Computed example of a mutant assay.
Amino acid sequence: MEKKINRNNCPRTTRILMNGKETVCLTLDGRLLFYQADTGSLLRELRMDGETILAIGLHPDGDKLRVATDRQMHLVEWKQ
């Protein structure tokens, strides 16, 4: 049975991005949750070390996310 990413496994989400294989959710409490798109399995969780995440977006190369915080811009790899 195919699992879907939904409010139960991506709670309190303010932004969702997809690259085909993975989905990233930005939560209200400032976490980036990386899910496998086809199974809905949580792959990893990332916090920006005390920084408040203001926005996320796709990087033009498709392999990274642009993460804007209250302190600076970050490039985050889709894969760890």
Rank of each mutant, 00 (worst) to 15 (best):
E2D: 11
G50K: 03
T39Q: 09
G62A: 02
A68M: 10
Q36N: 07
W78H: 10
L54G: 08
T14N: 13
R15Q: 09
L33H: 01
L65W: 00
L26C: 01
G50Y: 04
G57Y: 08
K3F: 15
T27G: 01
Y35K: 10
T27E: 02
D29A: 05
L26F: 03
K64P: 05
I56Y: 01
G57I: 01
C25H: 00
M18C: 12
G20K: 03
M1P: 15
F34C: 01
R31F: 09
D49N: 14
M18Y: 13
G30N: 06
L65Q: 02
Q80W: 13
V76C: 10
I16D: 06
Y35M: 12
T39Y: 11
P60M: 10
D38Q: 15
L26Q: 00
T39C: 08
G50D: 02
L54T: 10
C25Y: 00
L43G: 08
G40T: 08
Q80D: 15
K4H: 14
R31K: 12
L26D: 01
D49F: 12
A37H: 11
L28T: 14
L58Y: 03
E51Y: 05
G50T: 05
L17C: 05
E51A: 04
T14I: 10
S41N: 14
G57H: 07
D49I: 12
E2S: 11
L65G: 00
V76L: 06
L42T: 03
T69M: 07
T39P: 06
Q36Y: 13
N19H: 06
N6G: 11
G62S: 03
D61I: 04
